[in-house]
Structures are given as structure tokens and as C-alpha cells.
Nucleic acid binder design. Structure first.
Length: 154
DNA sequence: GCCAACGTTGGC
DNA sequence: GCCAACGTTGGC
């Protein structure tokens, strides 16, 4: 059975982990998601091979900085059990871990950051989640048309 | 640094 | 189950 490839936008603060960091390490586990809506997407919908717009949040400028790919589907986030981790969750049960991570691999860095202001100004992206007011979700679905439109803006 | 938007928590 | 208080996100 073939599952259609999906596309996502994933936010990262570049001061913590940037597209250049991903380019250097090639692959990383996408940890620290502690929001139920984002968790549900990671757990249920994000699959190997899915394409990702790597978005720099809390950055100057904020915007899409590169492309990544899902290298491994959801598995339990080890940091939820690590008492020394800032992501430790005392309520996390070993037999039913609430938090998951996926692995993300580097595909390419865009020649320039496509800024949020540009995304908002593009009528083709009017329905894109990240352009909506108060859009805080750190893992967002992106349509194939939106994905192509963003890359075409570079 | 400010603050609007949003999610979560907890008292009732 | 409601909702006020609180904490966080993230653009500006």
C-alpha cells in the first residue's frame, strides 16, 4: 500500500537549531514538541519521505530557510524520561509515552530565506497555516501547491 | 522588550 | 464543564 507523500512546515529557532546546523549534522531527531496538536500530527500523520519546509521562527527575518525530509516516523521521545532534561515530563508513563520525536534529514538550504512577510503577501498562500494570525503550531500541514509556491519564491 | 494570541491549568 | 489566571510563542 502506498501512502501519499505529505508536506509539512516545521519551526525551529535558529539560535537553538538552524538550517545550517541541520546541514552540518545531516540528520537529527526533532525533539521538544510538547504541544498536543503538533504531537498528534507527528504521531499519526508524519511519515518517512515526507517533505518539510524548515522554518526559522523568532528570527530576523523569520521565514522558510530550507528543505528537509522525514527520515524516521514517530518513536518515543527519550527526553520525557530524562530527569536532567528540560523536557522531562514527570507524568510520562513508560508503557504509554505521550511524547514522540521524528527524525529529520537535511535536503537543502534555500538560496535565501523566504520571509514571513513575503509569504503573507503571496495570494497563493492565503490559506497557508503559517500566514494566519496567531499561528503557533510548530508542526503544520502544507499542501503540495503551497510547498511548490514557497520554493518558487526563491 | 512589548504584547497579542493561544494553550494549559486548576478552582469552583 | 466553565472560565479566569497563568505561561508560552513568536512577530514586531
Amino acid at each position: 500500500m502506498t501512502v501519499a507523500k505529505r508536506r509539512w512546515l516545521m519551526k525551529s529557532e535558529p539560535s537553538v537549531f538552524s538550517i545550517d546546523d541541520l546541514a552540518r549534522v545531516k540528520r537529527t531527531s526533532w525533539d521538544s514538541v510538547r504541544n498536543y496538536q503538533a504531537r498528534n500530527l507527528l504521531r499519526d500523520d508524519v511519515k518517512v519521505g515526507d517533505e518539510v519546509l524548515f522554518y526559522h521562527s523568532s528570527a530576523d527575518p523569520a521565514g522558510v530557510a530550507g528543505v528537509a525530509r522525514i527520515a524516521r516516523a514517530a518513536y518515543p521521545d527519550p527526553s520525557q524520561f530524562d530527569k536532567k532534561s528540560e523536557y522531562f515530563d514527570p507524568k510520562a508513563a513508560r508503557d504509554a509515552p505521550p511524547w514522540v520525536v521524528v527524525d529529520v534529514e537535511f535536503v537543502r538550504k534555500l538560496p535565501r530565506v523566504v520571509t514571513l512577510a513575503e509569504l503573507k503577501a503571496n495570494p497563493a498562500l492565503a490559506e497557508m497555516v503559517v500566514t494566519k494570525r496567531g499561528s503557533r503550531l510548530s508542526v503544520q500541514p502544507v499542501t503540495a501547491a503551497e510547498f511548490a509556491a514557497v520554493l518558487a519564491m526563491t
